[in-house]
């Protein structure tokens, strides 16, 4: 199966926010909602400074925590990217809590995040951010091609930055946003080896099947049993009344006798 990926070259990115605006307009995002956040990262003391741009967005993890915890299936993997069908979303916010990068947000009570411009790409276009990036810091394509380009760029970047590297090849099963970093990930506020807690997988593997199975079994079993059990109980109660009235008849007569 072909999977797709973004390339995000943080060597080239100069922080112009063209991607942010293209994403907001192309995807008609509400005021206050952004799928991409650009911020500055500075290290060192004047004048020995280093700085890079943080480009915070959904990284489309292969082992996506949000997908693992989503109880309704609104979040799902497709073509290597993490899609969101908000019409299926209940707003439970488990994805908000689970994402190791703090990406999904609730908007109007539903989860909201980059879906890799699913509709645009299906219509044959490039994701809005990729199409507009003046620095050519963004690319979109088959993951293999993107990965090769990432390694090519990282290699070239090492002439300037000895620690330049590719990020996202293996992290979380491989990110759908493959990054070219000018420095070590820790320097750029990225976890070197992010982990999804194994416990997240119990949601879909344990909790959901257990719930469906146990509830289904309980309902079916008690439903059937109820018919039999209620009949039995009714018989016992009827029997009880017969007994009682017999005893009562026997007991009452002497009283009457006393009276008379």
């Amino acid at each position: 199966m072909t999977t797709y990926a973004f390339l995000l070259d943080l060597g080239r990115c100069i922080g112009c926010q063209a991607c942010v605006a293209a994403c907001k307009t192309g995807n008609e995002l509400s005021p206050g909602v952004q799928y991409i956040h650009i911020s500055e990262q500075t290290r060192g003391v004047f004048p020995a400074l280093q700085s890079s741009i943080k480009n915070h967005r959904c990284y489309h993890c292969a082992d996506a925590a949000c997908v693992a915890v989503c109880p309704t299936g609104a979040l799902y993997k497709e073509d290597g990217l993490t899609r969101l069908d908000a019409s299926q979303c209940s707003g439970c916010a488990y994805c908000v809590d689970a994402c190791p990068f703090n990406v999904p947000q609730l908007v109007n009570g539903r989860s909201n995040k980059c879906d890799g411009c699913a509709e645009v790409v299906k219509a044959g276009g490039q994701p809005w951010c990729v199409k507009t990036c003046p620095s050519n810091a963004l690319m979109y394509g088959e993951r293999e091609t993107i990965m090769a380009e990432a390694h090519r760029r990282a290699e070239a970047l090492r002439v300037r930055y000895p620690h330049a590297q590719v990020y996202g090849e293996t992290q979380l099963g491989g990110l759908g946003v493959v990054m070219v970093l000018p420095d070590q990930p820790e320097q750029l506020d990225l976890p070197a080896n992010p982990q999804i807690p194994a416990v997240l997988n119990t949601w879909q593997n344990v909790v959901q099947p257990a719930s469906v199975g146990l509830l289904g079994f309980s309902l079916a079993f008690t439903g059937l049993a109820a018919i039999i059990a209620r009949r039995n109980h009714k018989q016992e109660v009827a029997h009880l009344h017969v007994q009682n009235s017999a005893e009562e008849t026997a007991a009452v007569q002497p009283d009457h006798a006393n009276e008379t």
Binding site: N27, E28, L84, R110, K113, V120
Partner: peptide, 12 residues
């Protein structure tokens, strides 16, 4: 157009 989000809620 600028008020609601996409993510499958309505036609882009």
């Amino acid at each position: 157009a600028t008020v609601l989000n996409q993510n499958g809620l309505r036609l882009p």
